[in-house]
């Protein structure tokens, strides 16, 4: 049935949105940096994997692993080196400088990737099978994408809610001074959050390439979509962003089916603008 198929596609898209946006929210909430290079980190992984497996013939698993490692290194570079000037500032000054630094990096990466590897498109082909439950038909790619993203998001949620590291991260996003007073080391967790964000976003890229091809130029698009979902879910709220991602994916998919890509995008943008004006803490309200 058409609607069921749309729902699945919407949920899968939404889960991928959640993966991308949650990293953005974590990094913003903890480091006060809006990482506009986030989408490029995703593409960095997929391009690395594509180049290694297609050009150099490496086995896929190895290529995937190296793809992730490249992004993790880039994330660490972001926090430990690139953003040093930003961390010397506080408050709004830091946000602005961080924004521009990551934007500059995004442009460099974007330009570099599309020049050096213009044909590095990644599609991950999973063994094909079809599952039929009653009148619902699911392709294996959809199932795997959905389960993988769901698993990652649940792990992230549990990590944040139940582990000491997770609680430390949540506390740092709410009150940095309070966290210091309790003995939580800020720099260590800031690096951790960049690494986690990088890890999740590169996995998101792989999951995406299971259902659709990811090209080297897609970085900007992913960053913007991630940013929009962030705002909808509340730019400091991790749980809000996770839920907002799925919601946005669903609504967006339906809108595209009804009024076409361009107009659906415009509606999404208008909705984000309204959210910024009316409910900047996110549509789900004030939450961690």
């Amino acid at each position: 049935m058409d609607i069921i198929s749309l729902i699945f596609d919407g949920v899968i898209l939404g889960l991928i949105f959640s993966l991308i946006a949650s990293g953005l929210t974590l990094i913003y909430g903890l480091g006060n940096v809006l990482n506009l290079a986030h989408g490029e980190l995703l593409v960095l992984s997929t391009v690395t994997t594509a180049v290694l497996s297609q050009l150099l013939g490496l086995p896929l698993i190895l290529a995937l692993l190296l793809g992730v490692i490249v992004t993790l290194l880039a994330s660490a570079f972001l926090d430990k080196i690139l953003l040093i000037p930003a961390y010397r500032l506080v408050g709004e000054d830091r946000i602005i400088l961080g924004l521009y630094m990551t934007l500059a990096l995004a442009y460099s990466l974007h330009g570099g990737l599309i020049t050096a590897f213009p044909n590095a498109y990644l599609t991950i082909n999973v063994p094909f099978f079809v599952i039929e439950i009653a009148w619902i038909t699911l392709r294996s790619s959809q199932l795997i994408a959905a389960l993988a993203s769901f698993a990652i998001l649940v792990s992230l949620y549990l990590f944040l809610k139940r582990t000491w590291h997770g609680m430390a991260i949540r506390s740092l996003t709410q009150n940095e001074i309070g966290a210091m007073l309790v003995g939580i080391p800020i720099k260590k967790y800031r690096l951790m959050v960049f690494i986690i964000g990088g890890l999740i976003v590169s996995l998101a890229g792989f999951i995406r390439s299971v259902v659709a091809t990811v090209g080297p130029e897609s970085g900007v698009e992913f960053t913007i979509l991630g940013l929009l979902v962030c705002v909808i879910g509340g730019v400091r709220s991790i749980s809000g962003t996770i839920f907002a991602g799925i919601l946005t994916g669903l609504v967006y998919t339906f809108l595209i089916a009804m009024i076409g890509t361009y107009l659906a995008y415009v509606m999404l943008l208008v909705f984000v603008m309204i959210t910024v004006l009316v409910r900047p803490q996110g549509i789900l309200g004030e939450r961690w």
Binding site: L34, E92, I95, I96, L99, I224, L227, L228, V231, V235, G260, Y262, L263, Y265, V266, L269, V270, V272, M273, V276, L277, P280
Partner: peptide, 29 residues
């Protein structure tokens, strides 16, 4: 709007970025 709603710099940025994207998409569509 930005002043009345006391938008911080980053939200004004997001808001106006959205305007840019709307403009680009509408002019193409």
């Amino acid at each position: 709007l930005s002043v009345k709603r006391r938008l911080v710099v980053i939200f004004t940025g997001v808001f106006t970025l959205a305007i840019t994207l709307v403009f680009t998409n509408l002019t193409i569509a």
